[in-house]
Amino acid sequence: MQQITFTPYITHQGGWRATIEGVRTASSVRGKGVGTKMIYWAIERAKERGCHLIQLTTDKQRADALRFYERLGFQATHEGMKMKL
């Protein structure tokens, strides 16, 4: 499963940004292309929506996930922060 959110943002003349979060695949299907298909599906939805940018969040401690996303073309360009309420 994954969550994709579309958000208008002020750069790119008020264009749209897609954010992928909560990506999960069952351990029994890892390494079989399911995650890749899920991410490509999300990228296509973002293109259909006219997004100028697609971003995702992942835990910095998950080295395998980071390599996976980099292999799909994502780059770690920003540092994110959270605050639990």
Score class of each variant (00 low, 15 high):
K37N: 14
Y9S: 00
K47F: 00
I39G: 08
A65Y: 08
Y69D: 15
F74S: 12
Q75C: 03
I39L: 06
E48Q: 14
R62D: 12
S28L: 13
R45W: 04
F6E: 00
Q13Y: 04
T19I: 03
A42F: 04
R62Q: 13
P8N: 05
A26M: 15
F68R: 10
I20Q: 06
T19M: 07
V23H: 01
T77N: 11
V29M: 11
G80A: 10
T5R: 04
R17K: 13
Y69T: 15
G31I: 04
H78F: 09
E44F: 06
I39T: 11
G50H: 13
Y40W: 09
A76Q: 14
Q3W: 07
D59A: 14
T11S: 02
R17L: 10
Y9Q: 01
Q3M: 05
A42E: 06
G33T: 14
M81I: 01
V34N: 12
M1L: 06
R24M: 13
P8R: 05
M1E: 01
V23L: 06
A18D: 01
L56S: 11
S28D: 13
S28N: 11
A46R: 12
E48P: 01
R24N: 09
C51H: 12
G22K: 07
T36C: 05
A65E: 13
I54C: 08
G35V: 03
K60Q: 10
R67K: 13
A63F: 08
M38W: 03
A65Q: 12
L85E: 05
G50I: 15
Q2M: 06
T77W: 10
R49C: 04
H12D: 00
K82N: 02
G14T: 03
K32G: 09
A76R: 08
K82H: 05
R30D: 10
I10V: 04
K37S: 15
L56V: 07
H78D: 12
K47S: 02
W41D: 13
C51G: 08
V34S: 13
A46G: 07
S27E: 11
G50K: 13
R30Y: 11
R71F: 09
T57D: 10
K60A: 13
A26D: 14
V34T: 09
A63C: 09
Q13M: 10
Q75Y: 07
Q2P: 00
R24Q: 11
A76W: 10
E79A: 06
L72A: 12
M81E: 09
